[in-house]
Simulated scan of single mutants.
Amino acid sequence: MNFLNKIRGRTRVLISENERALHLLKGELKGILGPGDHSLKNGRGSLVIERHNLAIPQFRSVYEKALFDKFPDVVEKHLTVVRTGPGEIAIVERDKLIHAVVGPDERLVLWNEAGPWTWQVVDTVAEPELPAKLQRRLSEAQKAQHHVVIPVTDGSVALLFVDGVLTKVLQSGLHAYWSTGRKVSQKLIDLKRQSLDVTGQEVLTLDRVTIRINLSAEYRVVDPVKATQDVKDFTDTLYRALQLVFRKQLGALKLDQILERKGEVNEEAEAQIKTDMAKIGIEVSDIVLKDVILPGEMREILNKVVTAEKEAEANVIRRREETNATRSLLNTAKVMAENPVMLRLKELEALEAIAGKVDRLTVHNGTGGLMNDLVKLRDDTAA
């Protein structure tokens, strides 16, 4: 058979089931060869065979335009064409599984025999957001090159920007948007209550003492659009507001007033800061002047003043107690002078105290004599 083909100027071409082939004779495209044994003209080796493996479903060939122009019926039989326009995305499926995603203004040519093929065209201008089910399917198929996923945690929102323009405020959850042909970005805003510390701020008081203060404030974002569009950085704006207001408030007071009226200063400053920050969508609460740090020499002077004040207070208390003790003794003496029985009891208590402090007590004239001598001693003293 091969010998006869050579004599007749023909060539045997075998195409398997998983192949298709374009054949050209003398540079002219003749069509597509299906599976089987083909005997083709090959005058002087002018036959060209371009084989395509169906394991690669996409059709690519330098003869694609000639094939579409000359053999539309052959193209319809063997090939599927997926086209998209401006702003469109095509989701191509094979056997109900996502095979490819075709971007805007693109064309994808597939072998029919590698299918079956179905596809869905999405207008990304009219439908910029992906349904949750489609987003999951694309992620599982690892076809996420044409969209962005925006996760928003609980207690937060995300501002969606398309080509630099604020488009939507996204609530907590998982969101996906088509990104082909546009720039999609987001800014995550935490709506939970947060704290801000301002430390080591130097302030010159009215009596020209340089002090350092530490501030603390709690805040939360109530209007994320205002907070991001009216100022560049709302946290930095709050930080600077705390600095300026407290410098102004404390700079108008003397050191003693600051130390004595710390709470009142906080209330005055808090009212102004709350008003200013409410204008940009920030709710401020619990502003506290935590620390007032004095320079070393001023701290020593104040310590000496406090020590002197405390010593003076201690002396006053000591003198008061001594006066009270003396007055108590005088009252006791008056009671004893007016009541002999009370005096006799006190004498017995004294005798008991003396007896408790010596090993031996000798009474020569009896207890009655002892008591009489004590009474006599009292009488002599009274005389």
Rank of each mutant, 00 (worst) to 15 (best):
D190M: 06
V149L: 13
L188F: 06
V162W: 00
D230A: 09
S139G: 08
D230G: 08
R240W: 15
V203G: 06
L242D: 01
R240L: 09
V221C: 08
D230R: 15
K226I: 05
L204P: 03
W178L: 02
V245D: 01
T205H: 09
R137A: 15
Q145K: 13
D163V: 00
I213C: 02
L204M: 15
D223I: 06
S156I: 02
P151C: 03
H147P: 04
L191E: 00
R208T: 05
I189E: 05
K254W: 06
V231N: 11
T199A: 11
K187I: 03
K187H: 09
L134H: 06
G173F: 10
K254T: 10
L206S: 10
I150M: 13
V148K: 04
Q243W: 04
Q135D: 04
L250W: 12
I211Q: 03
T199H: 11
L191P: 09
A241L: 07
G200P: 12
P224S: 00
V245M: 00
V225S: 03
V157A: 02
A144T: 15
N214L: 05
E202D: 09
A176C: 00
S185G: 02
R136Q: 15
T228V: 14
D230S: 11
Q243A: 02
H146G: 04
K187T: 07
R136M: 14
F246A: 03
S216P: 01
A217R: 01
G155Q: 05
Q186L: 04
Q249N: 12
K192L: 09
G200E: 15
V203Q: 13
L170P: 07
Q145L: 13
G181D: 01
E140P: 09
A241V: 07
R247D: 03
D190C: 07
E218C: 00
F161K: 00
L238K: 05
V157Y: 06
P151L: 07
T210A: 08
Q229K: 14
S179P: 00
K183C: 00
L253W: 12
I189C: 04
K254P: 05
L160W: 08
K168I: 11
L204I: 15
L138A: 03
K168W: 14
L166D: 05
R193Q: 14
Y219Q: 08
A144L: 10
S172G: 07
V203Y: 15
V165E: 02
A227C: 02
L159P: 07
Q249I: 12
T205K: 10
D236K: 13
R182M: 01
L250V: 05
Q201F: 14
L250E: 01
P151M: 05
D233K: 09
D163S: 06
D230T: 12
A252V: 04
R220A: 02
L166K: 09
R247W: 08
V148R: 10
D154Q: 15
Y177V: 01
F246N: 00
L204W: 12
Q171I: 04
D233F: 12
A252E: 15
D154G: 07
K232L: 13
K254E: 09
V152S: 05
Q201R: 14
V198R: 08
E202A: 11
K183L: 06
L242Q: 02
P224H: 03
T237E: 10
N214P: 03
H147I: 01
Q142S: 10
I211T: 00
A217Q: 03
A252Y: 10
T180A: 11
K226T: 02
K143G: 03
